[in-house]
Amino acid sequence: MKIIVLIKQVPESQATRMDETTGTLIREAASSVINPLDLHAIECALLIKEAAKEKCEIVCLSMGPPAATKVLREAMALGVDHGVLLSDRAFAGSDTWCTAFTLAAAVRKLGLPDLILCGERATDGETGQTGPAMGAFLDLPVISFVSHIEQIAGGWRARRMLEDGYETVEIDGPALACVLKEAAVPRLPTLQGKRLSRAKDIDIMSAQDLGVSQDDTGLKASPTRVVKIFRPSHLKKCEKLPAMDPAQAEKAVDRVVCLLKEKGLI
């Protein structure tokens, strides 16, 4: 059995602070980490491997600059067997369509696995589109918002979160699943895992290696264009009411009730 886990390197969001006056993020030379939601996908893969009766190989696949080898090593420290990085200037500026197309080409090169796992979305772009689009390119059934996944005879059983509840589905054959954070709690890397991961090789593949032409990847090939970026301000002038003692509390609560009435909320 083979599982491919897609991971993305993102700026470490905990290293960011909010500029209170402009309401914007200050990124302080943020180091890159595995997209936090992808860690849950890696954990699902590791749990499936541990539960599997057959031999199981887990490959982490990422697309990004050469420095992204760092996040692949991080994944291998957790127990992932191999890391593959798609890195080429030609890929730069890819939107979700081009990214999904390029990743799909890489999966075809690597050989279609039994399962592809990815995080629900990346914490930087927050589109959640790359996984499903890639599933479509590979003609795999796409199960999104997955809160649990396990292997069954001939395929997979997954539980997915819908707006009003949870649905359990069974899938025949290979599939692509986008997992939620509740699917599994990521483990911590161990000293032994860290040391093993340092010694492992990471395959780096270029556009040429994949046979992907410039018409299908990178900024120029991307169907979408960013026209402008601006910073909204959600900051409000807060009417702060002290409510430490009972008298203050009563007054403050009355003010809230009054506001709710004004706004027609009660």
């Binding site: 470490e12 905990q14 911590l188 860290k194």
Partner: peptide
């Protein structure tokens, strides 16, 4: 019996 290594902010924070 085990040594966990946290070299990211998230993991450091977790321990």
């Amino acid at each position: 019996t085990n040594v966990y290594v946290a070299d990211t902010h998230v993991n450091s924070e977790r321990i």
